[in-house]
Nucleic acid binder design. Structure first.
Lengths: 182, 182
DNA sequence: ACCTGAACACCGTTCAAGT
DNA sequence: ACCTGAACACCGTTCAAGT
């Protein structure tokens, strides 16, 4: 396999999902990729930078366009579900992404999009910002609860329950948000 | 200073708040405590067990009794604020606590108390459980957003903003929860 | 110019020797 | 019985030597 930045990141993603972040070591990556340990530093400046790249890679999906919904509530819901879906596709990597500072750019963009939707719905600036933050907290917290906070732990084994829990809480928040607009 | 399990844990808490979890190493703890590296293993079986102990120690405060409020809404609010307050007293350690599996017992007890309050308020079992989970997700997510998810990062420098954000979101959820009971 | 082996300064934990 | 120095098997990263 041809070594490249992409393949190094992909190998790291694989290791994280299989054994957690703590299992990602430069020696292990090298043997996994069948290359010399030092060669890795040609594609990634450090282990930390590699984890940043994993976070960015794994969350890049939420930048994708979503089918616009007839009303702003469904639009917002779709955006929030998309965040969660992308995160759940790589749960342990998602916890890594969420733990990096600064947050991956795609996550910041998603937050900005939610804010824009709230503004367009008619919320004033302070309310729109605070609602967006509350939603972000809820999504993050749900992921934390589900996937196991420690990035080195596996996901829950009752995903259907987690989905229902998530939708229930999302309903709660959206109900209050809608009521607040009137 | 007399070495004991307590002093070892306290030293770890200090290091974590100052420099993050990653800075907690057995050698550093030893020099900080002025003892031999190996002596630490007489009080703590491993670094991992030490971090578990830090999580338990730091979160033990939420087990404290709270003044009962006239209505269940204020009761629930007080419980949730207490969780957040305790966590914010040691923000970086709180992130460690939240990241441990299983969660510290005091956190589980706090969740159980919230559940009991919801039951007493008149919610049926599935609703009570889901509301409690939504609230937990919100508190966890807020901490993650504020303190910086990575346990190795410092807290925000606008705590007042964070407080207002938190109360705003809590209001939203509590409003919807109250509406759902009727 | 690119690649990488050997080396450095760290880790957590164990073993076996000391008291 | 208790304590702990030396040692082991790891890390991430750098330097300087090779091609």
């Amino acid at each position: 396999m041809q070594l490249s930045r992409k393949t190094v990141i992909a190998a790291a993603v694989e290791i994280i999902e299989a054994d957690g972040v703590e299992a990602v070591s430069m020696p292990r990556l090298a043997t996994e990729l069948g290359c010399g340990l030092i060669s890795l530093y040609n594609y990634v400046p450090s282990r930390n930078a590699l984890l940043d790249a994993v976070g960015a890679e794994v969350m890049s999906g939420i930048a994708g366009t979503l089918a616009p919904q007839p009303n702003w509530q469904d639009d917002l819901r779709a955006q929030i579900r998309a965040c969660r879906q992308v995160a759940r596709a790589h749960p342990r990597c998602a916890m890594v992404a969420v733990s990096r500072r600064p947050a991956p750019a795609s996550m910041a963009r998603a937050a900005e999009r939610a804010l824009a939707t709230l503004r367009k719905a008619g919320f004033g600036e302070p309310d729109a910002v605070r609602i967006a933050r509350a939603l972000a907290a809820y999504v993050l917290g749900s992921l934390l609860r589900e996937a196991g906070a420690r990035p080195g732990q596996a996901a829950d084994d009752h995903p259907a329950d987690a989905d229902r829990d998530f939708e229930y809480g999302l309903d709660l928040i959206m109900q209050a948000v809608t009521a607040r607009l009137k």
